[in-house]
Design a protein around this nucleic acid. Structure first.
Lengths: 204, 204
DNA sequence: ACCGAGCTATGACAGATGTCACTGTTTTTA
DNA sequence: TAAAAACAGTGACATCTGTCATAGCTCGGT
């Protein structure tokens, strides 16, 4: 019997998923958390065979939970279940030792088999996810540098070049150059389109 | 026994929710659809006591389904279950005759009671939703006119003033004036911030 | 030691953006 | 009907934005 911790903020989704998974005789949702902090508390008190983590949560998000777990030396295998294809978050999650990363539109049987695989020590990435990752990595011209990512974040907060320059302690011209680079890499024509793309693709 | 149609695109959420609701002895999920078109097909073939509609879906979204239902004279009561607080969509849904509008973070018991209320002919709006609606209506200076909403939609697609002018068959100056008005009403400084706000608050 | 990549910066330029004031027309509403 | 909005337009203006060429610096890898 696989002992699972399920972490998901939306009550309906959490209860529904717990029910579905419990229908499988090999799986047992032993505890549920509705945010990252609850998840950490439960992880500290009990031991689980696997933690099913949502990414977007109040208080502490999935990445935050992973980070804290690693800091504490908690080796519980983690399967990320999220709504969005997000290259950056995916990479971060894997670097933090997540054992799997699947999208919420996965079929139930696939999810169950993913859980079993992770518990068995395998690494599970949905093909949709790996495709996405490969597409990104195979096209380095679309990869933003660290500074560019920072600037893109600022753009996504609605900052002007002048404000960004002040905040990052650069000249306005430099920021303009970075923005220009970003637009080219994202293949868009202006900052507004860049922000839209960033939000839609969760690049930020 | 309440005969329900459940429409939701994410398989996990749909199955989970169906399971949960079926646990209530008065409720029976008789059919499920994973997009708007399937939903319409099912509605045409069978009769239900209530349709539980997700808003965001591929092919045809919740509003589209409602619209088609009304065109066909289908009087099946509809309860909207959505992730987002969206004043505009809420108003449109209610105008199209939706009997209830609840957020996905609702508690299970509340959802069940909402379903029963809608079937009983009542109108159900979560307090979170009505608060949101009131907040908006009490501040008319923030209400966008029809034209302004149209322009804001264009902005949210990343269009320039010139492109919008051509699309809407106006002069560029007129569009500039509309944009200026929108920025004032949304209390932001430029189109990028307007788009961010529009996306975050689902004004579009 | 050298190369490439990332970061910084400048200047000049064209074009886009946003504001303001002012003028109309049409539609809604009181 | 009269007032109030919404809608459409113009011209002028300051500022912001994005592009391009060019150049110096630093750092990791070969």
């Amino acid at each position: 019997m696989i002992k699972c911790l399920l972490v998901e903020d939306q009550t309906l989704v959490r209860l529904g998923l717990a029910n579905l998974l419990n229908l499988d005789s090999a799986i047992n949702i032993e505890a549920q958390a509705e945010d990252g902090l609850q998840a950490l508390a439960l992880l500290a008190e009990h031991s689980f065979d696997i933690a099913l983590l949502d990414m977007r949560m109040p208080n502490l998000d999935g990445l935050g939970v992973l980070q804290k777990m690693r800091e504490k030396g908690d080796k519980t295998p983690v399967l990320i279940i999220t709504t969005f294809e997000d290259c950056d978050v995916l990479v971060k999650a894997l670097n933090l030792g997540a054992r799997g990363y699947v999208l919420k539109d996965i079929e139930l049987e696939e999810l169950i088999s993913a859980i079993k695989q992770v518990v068995a020590g395998e690494r599970v990435l949905q093909s949709a996810v790996t495709d996405f990752l490969l597409k990104k990595q195979l096209s380095p011209q679309f990869c933003l540098t660290g500074k560019e990512q920072t600037v893109l974040q600022c753009l996504s907060l609605g900052m002007s070049n002048k404000v960004i320059a002040k905040k990052l302690d650069n000249s306005e011209g430099t920021i303009r150059n970075h923005v220009s680079q970003i637009l080219a890499k994202l293949e868009v024509k202006d900052r507004t389109q860049a922000v839209i793309k960033a939000i839609n693709q969760n690049l930020i």
